[in-house]
Write a protein that binds this DNA or RNA. Structure first.
Lengths: 110, 110
DNA sequence: AAAATACTGAAGTATCCACTTGACAATTTG
DNA sequence: CAAATTGTCAAGTGGATACTTCAGTATTTT
């Protein structure tokens, strides 16, 4: 029927959970540590760790461990891919409308 | 922590499932009946009915029953909301780049 | 009217998934 | 060094969920 796309799969699965979207929300504001996220969310640090793993695999979040603290921040790759998916899945007549804006944006880039 | 948004919740949950994304995929090409979807997907019509309910609640698909056949097609409202969410959740420096394109697109609409 | 088609509804099942607890490792602080 | 902080790993649990089957309803076809 169609080629399966594991990246998109992980992406939507990642954002399908309210807690993970809350994390993305928070990180969009400013980078934070796992413990802070846990306190803010009212869940265990373990749970946050699991969520971070999923978000990282989806390309939505990137983390870096310095010393004993893991700092998490937004990674735009996932968002780019997501936006691309939406674009690819609009119906043709909708795409036609978008093309105008795209062309205008393109002409600005150079 | 943040106001919950049940619409976005339903939206991401709906697209979190591969089968439902396949349905969206197919309907993006052309409207179809539930039975055809079921055959194509290799699942029961009942299963398709359940998926359609979820997709409809999310505003991604609209269905209409004429006679005994339910015809399903893409509904753009969900896609619009989804794209809006992505826009709202990009980091500020990314937003800054987008603003150009947005302004250009806006000036074209009138 | 009888048979076939297209779907709907209730109920069950098996798997997945978000979260927990508890034990441990690594780093920082007193 | 001892104590506190920050995070990781393994295993378990309860609830959601993607399916199914079976029974029924409405519509179309013959």
């Amino acid at each position: 029927m169609k080629k399966k796309d594991p990246a998109i799969d992980r992406l939507f699965h990642a954002l399908g959970d309210p807690t993970r979207r809350a994390i993305v929300d928070r990180l969009g504001h400013a980078p934070t540590s796992a413990t802070r996220l846990a306190e803010w969310l009212g869940v265990t640090v373990t749970a946050v760790g699991q969520h971070l793993q999923i978000l990282e695999d989806a390309g939505l979040v990137s983390t870096e461990k310095l010393g004993r603290v893991r700092t998490c921040s937004i990674h735009h790759a996932g968002f780019d891919r997501l936006e691309q998916w939406i674009r690819d899945h609009r119906t043709s007549w909708e795409r036609r409308l978008e093309r105008l804006a795209d062309l205008l944006a393109e002409s600005d880039k150079d």
